[in-house]
Design a binder for these strands. Structure first.
Lengths: 250, 250
DNA sequence: CCAAAAATCTACCAGTTAGACCAGTTGGTG
DNA sequence: CACCAACTGGTCTAACTGGTAGATTTTTGG
């Protein structure tokens, strides 16, 4: 049974495992590194790891590391995948045509979404993305210019934005918070995506965070309704075994 | 409420926090040291600290210390929430009108999705769901009859399916695998949801699993495009090991 | 002046931390 | 094949943390 700060470490790790942050069968980062990342001491971290191992989520191997046990579920968890990765995973050729690329001051709403000061310089990138030459979606992103200076120079045609961010700007997108809704296509979108006016499209609005949890990018992506499907695994909130102490908790 | 010397300590600490003497997220000096520095006893200092924590400026962690609260909001993770829960969380009144409820043999496709033998008995439940009386979505579920016998008897009007499953059948849905796409409304859907023909709707197809990871329910939910938004947090898998371990235990 | 209240001091507990050191594993070297 | 350097988890210790309780002193208010 664990308690105190160890519970926090346990919850964070369990959540990460459920989300598929660490691939099944692979080794976790070293204890010392994990402890630093979770802001907890090694001893406390080991409590959490031991608990997870007892519950069957991890297996331990002395002097080698902690390994993610095979997932209980056969299906892959919902995972953040770039358009390019998704296309390649399906054996299709992704393309990206730049419609607009400017550096300008963020509007008030953009600054709000990005959590930066209003009028901070941002890179605006609008792209028409296709698979095997067929236009599939319209991508409209606003990126903090401070984090993505190099991107103003690079030729982004047919290039993955995630990969470019990592490669040229040393920015790794680790999490995106999305909201998705169905809407009729606006006339411009309909024309770009080669759709009938008011045809249904899937509109995804999202904010992307780097490894430190700092907002880097905000964007709207408009997919053809008939060409794209969004997949996700949803879980009930996790209940943790916490020792009940007679004293007042926390 | 605090008084006397504690107010002094509170004000000094609040002032220090306001001036950013202590970095956000960092630990404060130990109680004993802080108390000495402020010239008050530990008990008095703790009153001030507790007050600051209640006001959200500090967070406490037993045996670790007091931490300066970071101004970052804690984002809600993507979580499996029933229609009823979602409505209630927004202060709306959910409703559910039964359109069809029959027990029949599963079709081949349904059996496939549920992972059961073809022609297994299933409970089919079609409901029109609304919030505050406005129809919002059409819910069409197929549930393994073996797991949900009681549901054939219960009055499901305005009742949460998840709750009913738990309450009457002792089945807890813990995970759902969803896919979501935009599509034009079919004539029947348009009429039921009070929409124009071909108006965009959000179609969610999902399979729900119980705590043991066994498939229990499969369904299609059709939402009005303008009345519903799907939200999710997606995480990117971490490639932690540059070095590939040749094998893993177990 | 006295009793009540507030503040303090003291002591101990259980959880946390940082550090050091060990033995085993790994991948590379010659 | 042996050897090495760089890791890994396993173990232990000493110091430190807030949480709690009780005794003691100081301040307050009648």
């Amino acid at each position: 049974m664990i308690s105190g700060a160890a519970v926090h470490a346990y919850q964070e790790l369990a959540e990460a495992l459920r989300r598929g942050v660490y691939e099944a069968g692979r080794r976790l980062p070293a204890e010392r590194e994990l402890a630093a990342r979770l802001g907890v001491s090694r001893a406390t971290l080991r409590q959490a790891l031991t608990q997870l191992a007892e519950e069957g989520f991890l297996t331990r191997s002395a002097q080698r590391g902690w390994f993610v046990a095979s997932p209980v579920f056969s299906e892959p968890p919902s995972v953040l995948q770039s358009f390019t990765e998704m296309a390649r995973a399906r054996g299709l050729t992704p393309s990206a045509q730049i419609l607009r690329r400017t550096t300008r001051a963020a509007t008030f709403e953009e600054a709000e979404r990005l959590g930066c000061a209003p009028a901070s310089p941002v890179l605006e990138l609008q792209r028409l993305r296709g698979m095997n030459g067929v236009p599939v979606c319209l991508d409209h992103n606003v990126i903090l210019a401070a984090r993505a200076e190099a991107l103003a120079e690079v030729d982004m045609t047919d290039r993955s934005l995630y990969e470019a961010l990592r490669q040229f700007c040393d920015v790794v997108i680790e999490r995106s918070s999305y909201s998705i809704q169905a809407a009729p296509a606006t006339p411009e979108v309909a024309e770009l995506l080669n759709l009938a006016p008011d045809a249904p499209v899937l509109v995804g609005q999202g904010v992307s965070y780097d490894a430190a949890g700092v907002r880097v990018m905000s964007g709207v992506t408009t997919y053809r309704g008939d060409a794209y499907r969004f997949e996700a695994d949803l879980y009930r909130p996790l209940r943790v075994n916490v020792r009940v102490t007679p004293r007042s908790p926390q």
